[in-house]
């Protein structure tokens, strides 16, 4: 049994991390719902029951918001928040969403680090040879060039791969947004 006040304050609390104008717009819908339900002779408790668990409602609202944000912002923080919002829906086993996501993100990160390391290795070879003389100038220069070109090639490839990772994740999340839960769940 919930009154309108209890329902609205729980929803407000659950959405406290959302910027105020957006939260206000969302809450307006639910406030209106209670008012119109009252006009139709429904009690507050009935209307609250019909609306469903505020936690579910908040999770559903947050999900499409986070996905939309991740799309416009295009950074890892936004994408991760969207992934976690999906998990927050309780629709999926944590292992099935977070696991692959973290795994793939880690692989991508490792590849980026490798590309960076290759560039550093190339430059270091040249510097070291000039300094200590491990290789002759020509050897050092060709080794350095090979390393740096490999690094540049990797970066080009990785940029495409990272972009793919973003679009694929968002597509998957958006697909999940379409799922609306029934009352009995």
């Amino acid at each position: 049994m919930m009154t309108k006040y209890q329902y609205m304050s729980e929803l407000t609390h659950l959405l406290k991390n959302v910027p105020e104008p957006i939260r206000k717009e969302w809450l307006y819908d639910y406030d209106m719902h209670f008012q119109l339900a009252a006009q139709n002779g429904q009690s507050e408790a009935e209307a609250a029951l019909e609306l469903g668990d505020p936690r579910t409602v908040a999770a559903e609202l947050l999900l499409s918001y986070r996905v939309g944000q991740a799309e416009t912002r295009n950074d890892f923080g936004g994408l991760s928040r969207a992934v976690f919002a999906t998990v927050g829906m309780g629709l999926f086993n944590v292992i099935f969403v977070i696991g692959p996501y973290l795994g793939l993100a880690a692989v991508l990160l490792a590849l980026w680090v490798s590309a960076g390391a290759l560039a550093i290795a190339g430059i270091a070879t040249v510097i070291e040879s000039v300094w200590i003389g491990t290789f002759s100038y020509m050897q050092a220069l060709s080794l350095g060039l090979i390393c740096c070109s490999l690094s540049i090639l990797s970066v080009l490839g990785l940029r495409v791969l990272t972009k793919l990772f973003f679009t694929a994740t968002l597509k998957y999340l958006k697909f999940n947004t379409r799922i609306v839960r029934g009352k009995s769940q």
Binding site: G52, P54, V57, L61, S64, Y65, K183
Partner: peptide
Amino acid sequence: FEVAVGSVYPLLNR
């Protein structure tokens, strides 16, 4: 049909 009415608004938002 039985749906959680609260789900309609998030859908409309989306």
